[in-house]
Each structure stands twice: as structure tokens, then as C-alpha cells.
């Protein structure tokens, strides 16, 4: 098992290393210390990938249960809209307590969105892709409604620190993402949650009959996904110091799902890998930066992404491996048996 698992992450890791290598070569500052902070393109990549890491983390848990959450982009938009709306109403936009309240409210709304998704999936019993499609369509409308179709600008130091601030020489956004990763790993691997998630994803009926409260666990994953998406929405909106309910988190669900798949978690649920997902998210962000860094117009990023998607999916497809590398490589564990002519 472990060898196969290592194999699955080998190619993604290699691709990441190569792309980072290109970056290190082309950028004049790959990693350096300035004003007591870490700087450079590596740090930029990591900082920039924070929202995607957050969204993809939640997505991993949802996908592990055999679900999918298409609404994360809309939740980001809602969360950013709520926070910016509350902050713009503050007398002093730099008031720390005011910003905290705004952030708290945004997270609360995101949790509610996750709860809605989870309830539709686990209680009403709707297919996840459809259940979350509802919020995906309507959520952005809600965000637009909150902001009355306008882009809300905020001038709040504490709020923009979420995206561009530093703490202990490291970007706060990166720290938030790292904390979320740590929390998720702790939550799933130090408790039995990971096993129960994989069991529910592997077979919901069998899990129920084994006495697993699949319903509660499933709802929980959507709530976590909602909260992480909300957090990502805050970082993204803090980055541009405004709430743009149309473009915030647009298409991020696709990137997040992609990150999960690159990380070796199958879309049908079951076994999942959090480290794989983080790797996937960083790859996607690195690709975005690298394409620009080597002087290719930003528009071509999508083309490269499609190439990466195809390459990775094919490399993970047993059928493709079998066809290309012959059948001896498809099942490395098995012993070979001579076939007489």
C-alpha cells in the first residue's frame, strides 16, 4: 500500500520541484530576509496559495465522504461581502475589535452555508453535486444582494493584515493556512475521524450498519468546508481590500477539486491524503506564478493548467499506465507468473 501511495505523490512532487527550480532560476529573489520578514518568490507562492489550500482542505474532507462541494466559491464571495460590509460601517475601520467582530460574523455565515449544504446532503439525501449547485448559483446572488451589486472597498489595517501581514517573519495568510492544515491533520489522524470518514466514503450503507453516525460526520465535513472557504474568502478579500461578489472565488471550486485529485484522493471518496491536497494546491499556485515568471502571457496559464490536469490524471489512471507502460507495471506488488507460448 505505502509504495503505491508514494508513487501517487511522486509525480506531483517532482513537477512541483521542477517548477520551483524554474522559479528559483528566473526570479532574482527566490527567498531572502528583508526587514525581518521572509521575502521572495517562494514566499509569494506560498502566501498566494493560502486561500486555495484552505478551500482544498475542506474539499478533501467532503470528497473523502464521497461528496463534493461546488459552492465554495460562492461562500468565499459571501464571507468577503459580509466582512467588508460590516467593516465599512465601522466608525473606525482600524478598530481591532470591530474587525474581529466582522471576521467572526463572516465565519459564522460561512458555517451556516456549510450546514445548509450538509443538511441537504445528509438529511434530505440529495446528491452532493446537485445540493451544492444550489448554493453555488444562489450564493453569489446573495453576496451581490448584500453588496447591492457594488464593490465595497475597505481601508482597514487589521483586515488587510490577514493577507499581507507578517507574524514571526512569516506571512499571516500562510500561518492561517498552516494552522488549518495542522488542525485538519490532527482532527483526522489523531482521532478516529479519518477512519470513519474513509469508511463513510467507501460505503455509506455499510458504515451505517456498522453503527457509524454517517449523517453527523457528513454534515461536519460540509461545515468545515464552509468555514475554510469563508476563511479563504476573507484572505482573498483582504488581499484586494474590497469585496467583489462577482469575481471573488470564481472557479476556485474547480481548482480546489483539481488540487484534491492531484493529491491522490479519488473523487468517489474513501482514502484521502491531506498532504497530497496541500501539494496539489501549491502546484496549482506555482504553475500560475511560473507561467508569468518565464514570460508567457498570463492568459496561457489556463492552457498549461489543462496540460497539467491531463498529464496528472493520465499518470494516475491505471488504464493509461497499463496501456502505455505495459501490464507489468500496473500491479507492482504481484509476482510474475510465466506465460507459456
Amino acid at each position: 500500500m505505502t509504495t503505491i501511495f508514494k508513487n501517487r505523490l511522486f509525480w506531483p512532487a517532482l513537477i512541483l520541484v521542477v517548477m520551483l527550480g524554474i522559479n528559483a532560476f528566473t526570479s532574482n529573489q527566490f527567498i531572502t530576509i528583508k526587514d525581518g520578514h521572509l521575502f521572495g518568490s517562494l514566499i509569494d507562492i506560498l502566501r498566494g496559495s493560502a486561500p486555495l489550500i484552505l478551500v482544498a482542505l475542506g474539499m478533501t474532507l467532503v470528497i473523502a465522504t464521497g461528496g463534493i462541494d461546488l459552492s465554495v466559491g460562492s461562500v468565499m464571495a459571501i464571507s468577503g461581502a459580509v466582512a467588508c460590509l460590516l467593516i465599512s460601517d465601522l466608525d473606525n475601520q482600524n478598530s481591532l475589535s470591530g474587525v474581529f467582530i466582522a471576521i467572526g460574523a463572516a465565519i459564522l455565515v460561512s458555517l451556516a452555508a456549510g450546514l445548509w449544504n450538509g443538511t441537504l446532503v445528509a438529511v434530505v439525501g440529495i446528491q452532493p453535486i446537485i445540493a451544492t449547485l444550489i448554493l453555488m448559483v444562489a450564493g453569489r446572488g446573495l453576496a451581490q444582494l448584500f453588496t447591492e451589486g457594488q464593490i465595497i472597498n475597505v481601508q482597514s489595517g487589521p483586515y488587510s493584515a490577514l493577507a499581507s501581514g507578517f507574524f514571526l517573519t512569516l506571512p499571516i495568510a500562510l500561518l492561517i493556512a498552516a494552522a488549518a492544515v495542522g488542525l485538519t491533520v490532527l482532527l483526522t489522524r489523531r482521532t478516529a475521524l479519518g477512519l470513519l470518514l474513509e469508511s463513510v466514503g467507501g460505503s455509506p450503507t455499510a458504515s451505517r450498519l456498522a453503527g457509524i453516525g454517517a449523517r453527523r460526520i457528513t454534515i461536519m465535513t460540509y461545515v468545515v468546508a464552509g468555514a475554510f472557504a469563508g476563511l479563504a474568502g476573507l484572505i482573498a478579500s483582504a488581499d484586494i481590500k474590497s469585496a467583489d461578489s462577482i469575481s471573488a472565488g470564481n472557479l476556485i471550486e474547480l481548482d480546489a477539486i483539481l488540487a484534491v485529485v492531484i493529491g491522490g484522493t479519488a473523487l468517489i471518496g474513501g482514502r484521502f491524503s491531506i498532504i497530497g491536497t496541500v501539494l496539489g494546491a501549491v502546484i496549482i499556485q506555482t504553475l500560475r506564478v511560473t507561467v508569468v515568471a518565464i514570460g508567457i502571457p498570463a492568459e496561457a496559464n489556463l492552457l498549461f493548467k489543462s496540460v497539467v490536469v491531463v498529464a496528472l490524471c493520465l499518470s494516475q489512471s491505471p488504464e493509461f499506465r497499463a496501456k502505455v507502460f505495459g501490464r507489468f507495471k500496473s500491479r507492482p506488488a504481484a509476482e510474475k507468473v510465466g506465460v507459456p507460448a
Binding site: 500500500m1 478516529a192 477512519l195 470513519l196 474513509e198 469508511s199 467507501g202 460505503s203 450503507t205 455499510a206 458504515s207 450498519l209 456498522a210 453503527g211 457509524i212 453516525g213 474513501g270 482514502r271
Partner: peptide
Amino acid sequence: TEGIIGELSVRENIILALQAAR
């Protein structure tokens, strides 16, 4: 369909109900 979780290991399948109860 209602018994084993095929993808999980023998060990995980065996402890599943006990773990769920805990």
C-alpha cells in the same frame, strides 16, 4: 454492499464497529 468497506484494510474493517461505538 452492506458489510465490508472494500477499500479499507482488514484491520480497519474489524475495528470499525467498536470504533464507531466509542
